[in-house]
Structure formats: C-alpha cells, structure tokens
Nucleic acid binder design. Structure first.
Length: 746
DNA sequence: TATAATTCTCTTTTT
DNA sequence: GAGAATTATA
C-alpha cells in the first residue's frame, strides 16, 4: 500500500468526527479519559482510535488490547474495527475482561497449580459449591443462605481480599461464617481445578503480581490499552489494568458516570471519577453532543438523572430537533400492558417501521414471560436477549458437564451433575460415599468411581451402576484423547451416556424441546470446530468449554428484520433503537423493591437514565395498576421515575377513576381524591385524605392486614387515595392504592 | 435406598 | 409459578 493511500485512509477516518471526537482519536501516547455522554459516539471514537493507531503505525494490531464488559459489545466493536482496518483486526485482543483473563490463564495458570484444562464455574455451579461448604461446616443454611454468602465472597474477591485477608478483618458473626466458608470454598475450588468468574480476574492479577516476567511480557506486548464502560470497572479490574498499562501509561478509557449500573457486582464508580488523580497528566475529552435522541428524550433523561447527587454535570445536546412527547400509559395489569405494547407495535409496523427498530425493556427477566405470550398470540416475531439462557438449561449443563469430566477428572461438581443423569440408579447416598472415599483416599473422583468395589459401604446395585457408568465414560475418555472434532465427541457423549435415549423414551413435548436444544448445542460445537481464524490455537475440547463458559448470551442477537427485541435494562446498555418501550414503571418493580429497601435508588435511577437514552425517536413508559408477583397479585404505585419526567415532555392517559389524580393535581401535592364530595380536610399530612369512593378511609397509625404481605401499619396517607404501609413481616414500606389493594383495618 | 409426590421458598440486574 | 427441599412410597 502506498503512503498516499495511507494518508487518504486517515483523512477518511477523521472525516465526520466532531472536534472532541477527533481529539480523542488522534491523541498519541499517554493516558486519555473520554467522558462520553449517552449517544455521543463513544464506540465510534474507540474504533476509530484503534484504526488510527494502526493506520499511523503507532501500534501493530497485536499490540492492541481493547476491553469491553459484555461479549455483545466486544463482538460489535470487533466488527466495527474490522470494517475500518480489515483482516488485521484478528491479531487484536478485543474481548471482555473475563475472556482476556481466561486466555492469559490458559497459558499461565499452571504457575498457580492449576492445569490448563481448569473448569470455569458459572454462578449456579459456584453457588452449589458454596452450599456444600456450608453443609460441611454445619452452618445453618436457613440463617445464612448460600446466595448471601457467595455474594459476600464474590465481593471480597472483587476487592482482592483472599480468604486469609478476609478472616483477619471479620467483625460480625456473619462475617466469621463467611470467612470459614470462604476458606473451604477456595480450597475446594482449587482441589477441583476450577475457577469461578471472580477467580478469572483474581488469578490473572495473582499471576501478574507474582511473576514479574509474565507481567513484563504482557505489559510490553500490549502497548495500547483501551477500555469501554470504565465506570463499571471494579477493583480487581482496575488492578489488572494497572499491572498491564501502568508502566507505559497508554491507557484510554471511556465512560459515563451516569451510566454506572453494576454496583452490585462491585463496580466502583470512583475508578472513573478519580482517573485524573491516578494520572494527573491525563488528557480529558468530553463528548457532549448526542447523535441519537430527540431533545425531548434527552431533556427527560437529564431531568431524571438530576435527582441524583454527585453525578458529574453534563450538558447533552442534540440538533435532531424536539421530537414527539414521551408517551406515558397506565394499564390495568401486566396483561393489558403487554396487549398495549403488542397493539402499538402492530400499529407502528403498519406505518412502515421495521420490527428490528423496536425494543422493549424491563427491569427483571421474569417480566418477559407475559409479554412473550402476548407477542406469540399476536404473531409478532421477537427475540429475547439474555434471560433464561441457553447454557443454563438443565440438559445443556448436563451435556457440558459430561464434556468437562473428560478434560478435568477432578471436577466433583460436574461429576455430581451427571452421575445419575440420566437415571441409572446412583442416588444421593451412593454418590456421597464415592465422593468421600475419593477425599479420604486422595484420588480424583474419576479414579474413585472407576473402582467402585474398593469404596467402603457401597451396595451391590450401586457398584454395578458405577461400573456401567464409568465403562461408558472410559470409552468416551479414550475418544476424547484422540482430539476429535468437538461436535463429534458431543454426539458420542449423548448416545454413549444414554442421555439421548432417555429423552427419546420420554416422549413428552418437553423432552422433545430438550432434544432440540441438544441438537443446537451440537451445532454450536460444529461451528466452533469450523472456526479456525479467530484463534491461534487449534480447536480443542478445552478451548470449546472455555469459550462457552464465558459466552452467556448464545441465544444471540440477530439483526433480523422481522424481530422485535426484548431485554432487561442492564442488557440494553450500549444499544440504541428508534422505538423503545419501558415496561413496569412501578414502585417495587422499577425501582426494584430491593433497591428501595437497601438504598440503591441512585443506581436504579442511572438505570432509568440508561433506558431512556436508548431511544432515538419514540419512547413509551408504561405501568400497571396491579401485577402478579410470585403468583399473588400486588399493587404498586406509579414509579417515581415517571414522575421525575417533566409533565410538559409527556403525553399521558391517566384515568381519573384510579384515584391517582391527574398529572396537574399531583404536581400540586393537594389533590382531589376520586369521586365527588368534599375534599377531606387537612390534606396529606393529617391523615384525612385517601379513601373515598366508598372504600374505607385510612389514617396514619391504623393497623391493617394485607392479603399477601400480612400485618402492617399505615405510616402515611398521600393524595389520591394512596396509603403507605410498613409491613411487620419484613419491615418493607409499600405504597398502595387503598381502594384496590387487599387490605383491611384491624 | 431410589424415586415419586408434595410442600415449601424465593427472584434484580451479569461475566 | 418454577425450583429446590423435604417427605412419602415402593
């Protein structure tokens, strides 16, 4: 390629960037902080910067490390870089923190006493292991749930506190318990040659810290490090970046403190707020022009986020015009909400909008079910991102556990999973005997199971079962050793183990679906077998297992014209759609009850900010008067986030019959409750309001009983017949519509 | 001792 | 309303 062509390329690369974007792209060596508001083109800046570094010869493709949080984001970034620089992208590391660490560890984990075939445990595997540790330590699992303890351990790991360090700073009894479980959990993981998600990061940092020559190698190699969504990094990730980029300091980070939504995972917003303290000479670029949304949408998002304290001031602006008002809709229940969405989608599609321009967001995965049912009935094609993930289905986990056993014979968790699946007469008791024998004898679970005759106390029938089971496993092991295509091996596993046979014998619709899922897994494996380009390594079973352990959303996002996209708000980050529906805008749903109770409102509000700013043109916010939660019906008030959007930006349909009052009435806190009759004297704080319409009137201090939440006391009466009740059972405070909620005075 | 039936209990968000 | 945990049955 001639020098001229290069120059032309570079010009083209910079054309169409605004001034701050261009500054960020052409910034040479040294730390760079890009504060990028929503929709300000940060991915564009990152990809163009990479292309610019390569194009100007400042970096070779293999000297670039670009980190994202999700596989989806990594994939998108890779595609977009590839459009700019072509095949050379392949030498770059464009991936998530976890993938990058896993890749490092495959090369260097042996230094920490793992084999390169170590297993990666997902959340549920990890939790199961925690639970076993709890049982072994005779901790009361009612008092401290495995989930809570695992969360605490995870938190410690993300702060780079190992079991020993944690044990030294325990205060409460809970922490003492966690310390004990943590210690056992860690040794169990190591003994099984397994790592949980947190370990991938922690062990990578360990290797880099303990072995200067390894650190040297990576630090020298990755001369330019770029990080997306920097506001969501936690301490381990921070440390990892420091070890790799701390010396040459060619670290470019992009983020937006208003979009920090992973606090629950240990994300430390200070990492971005303090970047300039870490690097006093950092170049700071602010991207404030929004290229995505109408001014109305931006104004709404800005108004909402303004209710948070301590966000960095930002002035997002756009020249795309005012646009239409935000449509706020109140529906009777979640079914009506779903029907409304389906109806609107049909209407919009009739107007010529393509379905793939429409997205529906919700707070929790559980909310998707009703909507899916409705969409199916309305024959509207859709895809769900995340949610009940393919790889979390029992049959898929089983199949993977079989494969895992073949590379990691120490993996007791996998062994436990498959020993009696399909049913082959190996019950809990026999299993425990073999496991504890393996522990006593100091052999792997595989070895112990191979010789059931030497396991003390094992019944004859059980011995026979183990013989049969391990006979099949041994054959599979021999096959695996020859390194056949993973898809072939998988097929053999499914037939040799009797798994497929058992499903076929079942002859239910459910088992049919499972078989289809397994076929899909075979396809995934075949795809892996065929994909040589993205890897230096040859395809291998271990490589396959690693890849699928880290790819959570294999249900995959397709850019199919005919599909509406459904996902949680967390999954929505980084994406944009012309039409966006935000469902379940109710107190207790969004913001989530738990966040309300545990002081997580600011993060919820940032989540709202993320949701609102995904919309380009049309934005809907819907809420339901009642909703089924757990199966019983519950009544939640309209979300505060709806009310934080200025009235003037919205178009609302509230029905006076609800008693919530019209928007204007709410704005003046003095309201006319439903029905006729005099305004109850005193207003909101004297306890006189509420009620009306024939229902009972409630006063502050009234004792009440709720059909689902039990006994409680009225702690406030608000305008529009809303009472706030604190429930004795869990101490929660709920806003309820007095006339509708199943409550009675005592 | 293995499996079938029944009774609890939980649900945030993700790698 | 689904999963797991516990209890009943074979």
């Amino acid at each position: 390629m001639s020098a001229n062509a290069h120059v032309a390329d570079l010009d083209a690369l910079l054309a169409g960037l605004n001034e701050p974007q261009r500054e960020a792209v052409v910034h040479g060596e040294g730390p760079l902080l890009i504060l990028a508001g929503a929709g300000s083109g940060k991915t564009r800046v990152l990809t163009h910067r990479i292309a610019y570094l390569v194009g100007t010869g400042q970096a070779r493709p293999d000297e670039i490390l670009a980190i994202t949080f999700t596989n989806k984001a990594a994939q998108e970034m890779r595609e977009r870089v590839e459009m700019l620089v072509g095949r050379r992208t392949r030498a770059m590391w464009v991936m998530t923190f976890h993938s990058a660490c896993a890749r490092m560890l495959r090369a260097d984990a042996h230094r920490l006493g793992y084999t390169r075939q170590f297993t990666i445990y997902d959340q549920s595997d990890a939790r199961r292991l925690v639970k076993r540790a709890i049982e072994e330590l005779d901790v009361d699992p009612k008092r401290f749930t495995p989930g809570a303890i695992h969360h605490e351990i995870s938190d410690a790991k993300n702060k780079l506190r190992d079991a020993e360090a944690y044990a030294q700073m325990v205060g409460s009894f809970f922490e003492q318990t966690v310390a004990d479980v943590y210690k056992l959990y860690e040794s169990e993981l190591h003994r099984m040659n397994a790592m949980d998600f947190d370990d991938l990061l922690v062990r990578a940092v360990n290797v880099l810290e303990l072995f200067p020559e390894v650190r040297r190698r990576y630090a020298d190699n990755f001369r330019h490090v770029l990080v997306d969504e920097y506001q969501d990094t936690n301490h381990v990730q921070y440390r990892w970046l420091q070890l790799i980029a701390g010396e040459h300091r060619n670290l470019a980070v992009v983020g937006d403190d208003s979009q920090s939504i992973y606090g629950f995972r240990g994300a430390d917003i200070r990492n971005i707020l303090d970047f300039e303290d870490d690097f006093p000479d950092a170049k700071v670029v602010k991207l404030e022009q929004n290229y995505r949304s109408t001014q109305t949408i931006l104004d709404a998002a800005n108004a909402v986020i303004r209710n948070n304290r301590g966000q960095r001031e930002k002035e997002l602006w756009t020249d795309l015009g005012i646009g239409d008002p935000i449509k706020v809709r109140e529906l009777d229940d979640e079914h009506a909400e779903a029907r409304f969405v389906a109806g609107e989608i049909e209407r919009i599609v009739d107007e010529g909008v393509s379905r793939n321009e429409i997205a529906v967001f919700y707070r929790t995965n559980a909310q998707s079910r009703v909507l899916e049912d409705t969409l199916v009935r309305a024959q509207i094609g859709y895809q769900v991102i995340g949610g009940t993930k393919f790889y979390e289905r029992a049959e898929i986990k089983d199949a993977i556990a079989y494969l895992t056993m073949l590379v990691n014979p120490q993996d007791v968790v996998s062994f436990t999973r498959i020993a009696n699946s399909p049913r082959r007469g190996i019950g809990q008791t026999s299993l425990s005997r073999v496991i504890s024998w393996a522990n006593t004898a100091g052999i792997t679970i595989w070895e112990a199971a191979l010789e059931p005759d030497s396991v003390p106390g094992l019944g004859t029938a059980a011995r026979k079962s183990f013989h049969r089971f391990m006979g099949a496993m041994r054959i599979l092991g021999e096959r695996a050793a020859a390194n056949p295509p993973v898809s072939e091996l998988l097929k053999e596993v499914l037939s040799e183990s009797g798994y497929l046979e058992a499903l076929e014998a079942d002859r239910t619709i459910e088992s049919q679906g499972r078989i289809e899922n397994l076929e899909e897994l075979v396809n995934v494996a075949a795809e892996y077998d065929g994909s040589v380009d993205l890897r230096e390594e040859a395809p291998s079973l271990a490589g396959f297992l690693q890849q699928i352990a880290l790819v959570a959303d294999a249900d995959g996002r397709r850019d199919d014209e005919g599909l509406v996209t459904l996902m949680t708000l967390h999954n929505a980050k980084g994406l944009e759609y012309p039409i966006v529906f935000l469902l379940g805008c109710e107190e207790g749903v969004f913001p989530h009850q738990r966040a309300i109770e545990e002081g997580g409102l600011e993060e919820e509000r940032r989540l709202a900010y993320v949701g609102l700013t995904r919309a380009m043109r049309d934005l809907y916010m819907t809420y339901a008067r009642t909703r089924a939660v757990f199966g019983s019906r519950s009544y939640g008030a309209r979300s505060r986030f709806v009310d934080e959007v200025p009235i003037g930006l919205t178009d609302r349909n509230e029905r006076p019959s609800l008693g919530v009052g019209s928007a204007r009435e709410r704005a003046t806190s003095w309201s006319t409750p439903l029905g006729s009759g005099p305004i109850p004297g005193g207003g909101w704080d004297s306890g006189g309001g509420g009620g009306g319409g024939g229902g009972e009137a409630y006063r502050m201090g009234d004792d009440v009983v709720h059909a689902a939440f039990g006994e409680g006391v009225v702690i406030a009466v608000e305008s529009g017949g809303i009472v706030v009740i604190r429930f004795a059972r869990d101490g929660s405070e709920r806003k309820l519509v007095a006339d509708l909620a199943p409550i009675e005075k005592r």
